[in-house]
Amino acid sequence: MSRKRLYITVFLACLAGYIWLGVSYYFTWAGDGQWAGACPFRHLTGMPCPSCGSTGSVLSLIGGDVGAALYSNPAGLLLAAIMLIIPLWIAGDLLSSKSTFHRFYIDAEKRLAARRLAIPAILLVVANWIWNFYKYL
């Protein structure tokens, strides 16, 4: 992926993430504080997906409750870190005309595709998914 395309994609994804956080915060706040989320997979099949609870996790994190954030879905912490760090990283790159994030992204893709890292990562996602079944089914 070219530098320009990557930066635009990631910027738009982060922007969509922040808009989504605002929308879900409003729904939680306007409702009774209990919101089932908008996961289409869960609404269609009744089963949670590996990422169910991520929005709740990020919202808990904003509220300062790290324990609740971890319980909702540990992937939420990763999402929160991505949404905080990457826009700043991209802005830094654009201001200084560098490509540090682009290089990091290409390198990380290569490393993650290697079996040594991919298999533990898949197992972790599956384990998290099974935990989601206990929590949200």
Binding site: M1, C39, P40, F41, C49, P50, S51, L78, L79, E109
Partner: peptide, 13 residues
């Protein structure tokens, strides 16, 4: 496209 795959996985597609 591992990066996009992770993005899709983490955001319920």
């Amino acid at each position: 496209d591992v990066g996009l795959g992770i993005g899709k996985l983490l955001t319920c597609g």
